[in-house]
Design a protein around this nucleic acid. Structure first.
Length: 524
RNA sequence: GCGGGCGUAGCUCAGUGGUAGAGCGCCACCUUGCCAAGGUGGAUGUCGUGAGUUCGAAUCUCAUCGCCCGCUCCA
């Protein structure tokens, strides 16, 4: 992210627009003006996300015998997050300078003593402009009274509105009102740089909180990551499942962070879904398994249609990793708004089990029957952002293909999802809406395929138009029931249909009876 | 959180104080024998929201919400 990213805002705008137009993603609460940092998935987006989560689960849990699943509570006890360090440890109160807007850590502001000048406001003579807002300046060493008042005038001049043409002249003639002075000792309310008043220290609470109990006196947090419920249930999972190290616990679910600045469509949201594995192992295997998991995860992305060359592996250097991590890889994707993280593969050592063992006062050690050793397992954590990956799938799939022939321009918008991710697997069209036999057969095919996959029946308008509509939502195959199906071109083509491929726009013929196996083989 | 830009139909946008608009999309019917834009008809907006100025506000002022860009932050 030190990289000078190549961005393409125009492409991103088209993607956001398509997402809304075709029902992939809407802004949450849009009807009432919208809720910052929150998003709703529409019908197609929901299918896409479900496909991703199902595929992840299949590859991570179902097809492995060393990973088990769980689904933890979102509401989380405060003690859990005190132990993990999320309460208290990870955020510092900050103050902002009212003049320079510099942000300072409250605990790093030196205590200062001296004369403070308070002001009630400011006016501009011969104009209607006035500002009634208390402000103070500490007379720091080397500051004379004129300098103090100049600082105050500069502060009030921030509030000049557009009716004031000559801001420089206005600054000069600005009159301060209600000046009083006061001696203060050991105050941390003033910026040592310029003497300006600071805002009150503000706790940057990075977690979302909720209250419950009869009078709402109990607090709980919405979990900031799915990981903690895995660490807390690690012992129960171990005890109830006859499983040995190394093994993993996987979870897909919602997490919540009070993002100061949600940005880039769904990329940074306050509510988001994670797909996490906590993989427990012997301490000496941690580094090796981190590398192995990185490789496993890269293969996963290739399978869902995000090619290796669009991913960047960042080996997070010392000093930039979380303090408990011995090794961290960020898997980043080239989004149109820049290269951004999809997943972190972090070697977290025994930090997490260690803090919970200590915090809860209960042993979490693992006893190795073979070596007769007792130790705290180490953890490798591949943690993927589900919504981010959905967004990457959408960005990667989006394509505008120039199909102009002769002098007519024709741009085909195609979402090139791999079939396993595509929200709808097949479009089913009777060539002519008025042909009862075609419609009847099309409806029969729909009924046959529906138990197995999402299909979409469409008989509106020209068939070419229906193909294009499916292209735009990424449907990989379309089936058209035509006159050949009815036997009008001879017995050998009777009961065959046209299969049209999304990416190549090529067509082939297939017997109706072989349609289901043909599709199942290709859409999983 | 700070600074800048923006908010008008599903989408892209025009409209700068005096009757709410266009293109595409959408719906219906007609046409259509395999890759969009053919014909006819139709629906859709408290002009982001709220207050103010005005005889009158999409237009001017203020506030608020949201989006985009740059900072800042990101356990």
């Amino acid at each position: 992210m030190a990289n000078k990213d190549v961005t393409d805002p125009v492409r991103m705008e088209k993607i956001v627009s398509l997402c809304k137009r075709r029902g992939f993603i809407f802004q949450a609460g849009e009807l009432y003006g919208g809720l910052n940092g929150c998003w709703d998935y529409g019908p197609l987006g929901t299918e896409l996300k479900r496909n991703l989560k199902d595929f992840w689960w299949r590859k991570t849990v179902q097809e492995r015998d060393d990973v088990l699943g769980m689904d933890g509570s979102i509401l989380t006890m405060e003690q859990v997050l005190v132990s993990s360090g999320h309460v208290g440890g990870f955020s510092d109160p900050m103050c902002d300078c009212l003049l320079s807007k510099a942000r300072l850590r409250a605990d790093q502001i030196p205590a200062q003593s001296g004369k403070v000048y308070h002001f009630a406001g400011a006016t501009l003579p011969d104009t209607a402009w006035k500002m009634e807002k208390a402000y103070s300046v500490l007379q720091t060493t080397g500051m004379d009274e004129a300098k103090v008042r100049k600082t105050a005038r500069e502060y009030y001049s921030q509030f000049f509105n557009n009716s004031i043409q000559d801001k420089k002249a206005a600054l000069k003639s600005l009159q301060l009102t209600g000046e009083t002075t006061e001696e203060v000792t050991d105050s941390t309310s003033y910026n040592p740089e310029n003497g300006s008043l600071l805002t009150e220290p503000r706790e940057f609470n990075l977690m979302l909180q909720t209250n419950f109990g009869a009078t709402g006196e109990q607090i709980a947090y919405l979990r900031p990551e799915t990981a903690q419920s895995i660490f807390c249930q690690y012992k129960n999972v171990l005890d109830s499942n006859r499983i040995k190290l190394p093994f993993g616990i996987a979870q897909v679910g919602k997490s919540f962070r009070n993002e100061i600045n949600p940005r880039n469509f769904t990329f940074r949201s306050r509510e988001f879904e994670q797909m996490e594995i906590e993989y427990f192992c012997r301490p000496e295997d941690g580094m090796r398994l981190t590398d192995e998991w990185l490789e496993t995860r890269l293969c996963f992305y290739a399978e869902i249609g995000i090619p290796r060359e669009k991913l960047h592996i960042l080996d997070v250097p010392d000093g930039e990793r979380a303090f408990y991590s011995k090794k961290t890889y960020d898997i980043e994707y080239e989004f149109p708004f820049g290269i951004q993280e999809l997943e972190g593969v972090a070697y977290r050592t025994d930090y997490d089990l260690g803090v919970h063992q200590k915090g809860a006062g209960k042993p979490l050690e693992y006893f190795d029957e073979e070596t007769k050793e007792k130790f705290l397992p180490h953890v490798v954590e591949p943690s993927a952002g589900c919504d981010r990956t959905v967004l990457a799938l959408i960005c990667e799939a989006f394509d505008e293909e120039e199909l102009g022939k002769d002098d007519k321009s024709d741009i085909r918008t195609v979402m090139r999802f791999v079939p396993a991710m595509a929200p709808i697997k097949v479009g089913i069209f009777p060539l002519m809406k008025k042909n009862d036999d075609q419609v009847r057969i099309a409806r029969e095919i729909q009924k046959t395929l529906q138990p197995w996959m999402n299909v979409f029946y469409d008989d509106g308008g020209a068939v070419g138009r229906r193909y294009r509509r499916q292209d735009e939502i990424g449907t990989p195959f379309c089936v058209t029931i035509d006159f050949e199906t009815l036997g009008e071109a001879g017995e050998e083509l009777k009961n065959t249909v046209t299969i049209r491929h999304r990416d190549s726009m090529e067509q082939e013929r297939l017997h109706i009876d072989s349609l289901l196996p043909w599709l199942i083989q290709r859409v999983r």
